[in-house]
Design a protein around this nucleic acid. Structure first.
Length: 683
DNA sequence: TCAATCCGTATC
DNA sequence: ATACGGATTGAC
């Protein structure tokens, strides 16, 4: 009788032990960024484990949530609702990731559930119920890996200062934090796979985050070769929901010792975490595009700190942020030794404003400087491929005659004229087009074909450059990589390979030469990271070229006196990063300080600033009008304020901004003011 | 004096 | 978001 009544009314009894569940509810409201207590029914007792997904009634609505922990008591004075449903007993949120997500939310003035959306893929019920059967293989594979490690240590990392020490520490399972600059030509996936193998030998796991899926594929192959296919999980954004969740679950259930992936993998679950790696941390693909916009490098630093895992911040180039890790002695530098560098670096030549045009008639037509033409010709003669790095299509519009559409050319070198990115926003009077190749401004353009003085923007991209270069080297195959068609690799026989930055294919055996024709990206740009970013792109391309001793040449279209060109010629990214960081200290730019940007229409922005309680040390810059790249008529004007505090007050700044958003969110003001911490380009 | 409505606030 | 409570207003 009693049971019948219970069933009819859906009445539930509390679980016998730990009847309280603390739950983060998935409502995107900043002032609800905390746990809420619910009762666990006795029928839910076994399934309602810490980290599982639940569904609860919240403010009359059914919403998703994460069960953080079970508890004996509650502080809540009112009546507790029961968990509506335990979605699944799979503990998708480990304590490690829960702690990390909270820290990341706090650091970026965002909410826990926003971060969890980045960290945990959507559930796929069928995948979840599939049985995984590889756990046994997993265990038996590790001893085999150990024998490989010894070879790996002696062969791969001996060209680096402290390289041996790093691998020894990883093998021993002790904590190491390093900033690693790879040698030009380095097979970096192999080195990272060796590091992961060393960590696996100590019984721990590795998470490696790389910019794009091509890198994931290379790294996956390198790791699988050493540790076995079963030990490596590859996560990237291009997987479908089912496959993505399947692989992610494999990692969560401890089936693999290595996870490699693109940026979402920074939160990848890993039992017995031993090592975290970010490759090429300067690549802007490492900046998450969804709120609260965390950066892979910063999240991994945080994760290493909280978990005690080792950390490797790696790349051919070095960012100012990585330099700060070195200078603060949080991480050790692992850099090429002199002898190895001499043996491996390509020979680099810069050409500035007053270069000689090639004598060759066809090359003259392609407007190639002599030094570039010669480098390409001799590489091709030796049956080697030549890499040509060109600006990203549409990145900056180049110019043509306003009446007859003849491409506008530089009077000095005949390179294409363009309005540089930094200038697009300025007044018309200040808009002087600049040569894309030599950087000389052209203040009084006159079309040689029709005499018009008007200019119009057009897009010049890889294709056009390819055509022009193809004519300069008749009979040589031309391949392009960029935009939608990105090549992963090419063979190294004579060919011209035209690629946009980030899309350079790897050439087996190395390129004979590289022509870096986007040197102008440096010039006229107001961007804080212009120098660093340009050097990073150059080094990434130049690293694919054969050593100078084997004829490898790099020709860069910028004056040899410029700092980034110097750094490339000497192949000294640490030196460049030192100067970069020193300069940012002097100017008060990140990472020497912490910054936050607030953007919105003037009135709401002013109101938000009024309401905001900032740390005493905070400096307010602005407001200044936001200059739209493409102004839309009727769209209201927007302004931006930058806040700046010493690094020590970064947490306080984030807390102020979180409080601001909470109180504005509670008054259900639509998001009129956008808050962003550590914006990638504050200027 | 009481109901309808408005506003602010908590949401377990 | 939505629901609830307290205050406010308007009609009897």
């Amino acid at each position: 009788m009693a049971t019948a009544r219970t069933k009819r009314k859906g009445e539930r009894r509390p679980a016998p032990e730990l009847p309280i569940a603390r739950v983060y509810v998935d409502v995107g409201l900043p002032h609800l960024d905390r746990t809420f207590d619910y009762q666990v029914a006795d029928s839910q007792h076994d399934d309602a484990v810490a980290g599982c997904r639940v569904r609860v009634r919240f403010a009359g609505q059914l919403v998703d949530g994460y069960l953080m922990e079970r508890a004996e008591t509650t502080d809540h004075t009112g009546r507790l609702a029961y968990l509506e449903r335990v979605v699944s007993p799979e503990p998708v949120l480990s304590p490690e990731i829960a702690t990390l997500a909270r820290a990341v939310a706090d650091k970026y003035a965002g909410t826990m559930v926003d971060v969890l959306r980045l960290a945990i893929p959507p559930r796929h019920a069928r995948v979840e119920s599939e049985v995984v059967s590889h756990t046994q293989d997993a265990v038996s594979c590790v001893p085999a890996a150990v024998s490989h490690v010894q070879d790996a240590v002696s062969h791969g990392w001996d060209g680096y200062q402290h390289g041996d020490a790093l691998l020894t520490a990883l093998t021993a399972g002790s904590r190491a934090r390093a900033v690693w600059q790879a040698l030009p030509g380095e097979d970096w996936p192999a080195r990272l796979a060796e590091a992961a193998t060393a960590v696996a030998a100590s019984g721990k796991g590795t998470v490696i985050v790389v910019p794009d899926y091509r890198d994931v594929a290379r790294l996956h192959a390198a790791c699988a070769e050493r540790l076995g296919e079963q030990q490596v999980v590859a996560l990237s954004a291009d997987l479908g929901p089912a496959e993505r969740y399947r692989r992610w679950l494999r990692a969560r259930r401890g089936a693999a010792r290595v996870v490699v992936g693109t940026r979402a993998a920074m939160f990848a679950p890993m039992t017995d975490l031993g090592l975290l790696v970010v490759w090429d941390d300067g690549d802007d693909l490492h900046a998450e595009q969804r709120a609260p916009y965390p950066h892979v490098r910063d999240v991994l630093v945080q994760r290493a700190h909280l978990s005690g895992a080792s950390l490797l911040v790696a790349g051919f180039a070095r960012t100012a942020e990585a330099q700060l890790l070195v200078e603060s002695r949080w991480a050790h530098p692992v850099t090429p030794d002199r002898a190895s560098l001499r043996a491996r670096a390509p020979r680099v030549t810069g050409f500035g404003e007053d270069f000689d045009l090639a004598r060759d008639e066809a090359a003259r037509a392609a407007r190639l400087p002599a030094v570039a033409f010669e480098a390409a010709r001799s590489a091709l003669k030796a049956d080697a491929a030549v890499l040509v790095q060109v600006p990203r299509r549409g990145y900056v519009p180049s110019l043509a005659c306003g009446s007859c559409r003849t491409p506008a050319r530089c009077r000095r070198c005949a390179g294409p004229l363009a309005v540089s990115a930094g200038q697009q926003d300025q007044q018309d009077t200040a808009r002087s087009p600049v040569c894309c190749w030599c950087g000389v401004p052209e203040s009084r353009f006159r079309c040689p074909a029709c005499g018009s003085v008007r200019l119009r923007a057009q897009v010049i991209g890889a294709r056009r450059t390819a055509e022009e270069l193809g004519r300069a080297f008749p009979g040589v195959p031309v391949r392009t990589s960029g935009g939608k068609e990105v090549l992963a690799d090419v063979d190294s026989s004579a060919a011209l390979v035209i690629a946009t930055p980030g899309a350079e294919p790897v050439a087996d055996g190395g390129y004979g030469a590289a022509l870096l024709l986007d040197g102008w990206a440096l010039l006229g740009r107001q961007d804080l990271r212009a120098g660093e970013e340009t050097l990073r792109r150059w080094m990434t391309a130049a690293a694919l070229v054969r050593p100078g001793e084997q004829g490898g040449r790099v020709v860069v279209g910028a004056d040899a006196a410029l700092t980034p060109v110097q750094a490339l010629i000497r192949w000294d990214p640490a030196w460049h990063a030192e100067r970069e960081l020193a300069e940012r200290r002097e100017l008060g730019f990140p990472p020497a300080v912490r910054m936050a940007g607030l953007e919105g229409e003037p009135k709401p922005l002013a109101a938000a600033m009024d309401e905001l309680t900032l740390p005493d040390s905070a400096e307010v810059l602005g407001p200044v009008p936001v200059l739209e790249t493409r102004p839309e008529p009727g769209r209201p004007e927007r302004e931006r304020v930058l806040l700046r505090v010493p690094n020590a007050d970064g947490r306080a700044l984030a807390a102020s901004l979180a409080a601001l958003q909470a109180s504005r969110g509670a008054r259900k003001e639509p998001e009129q003011v956008r808050v962003r911490l550590d914006p990638l380009s504050p200027i």
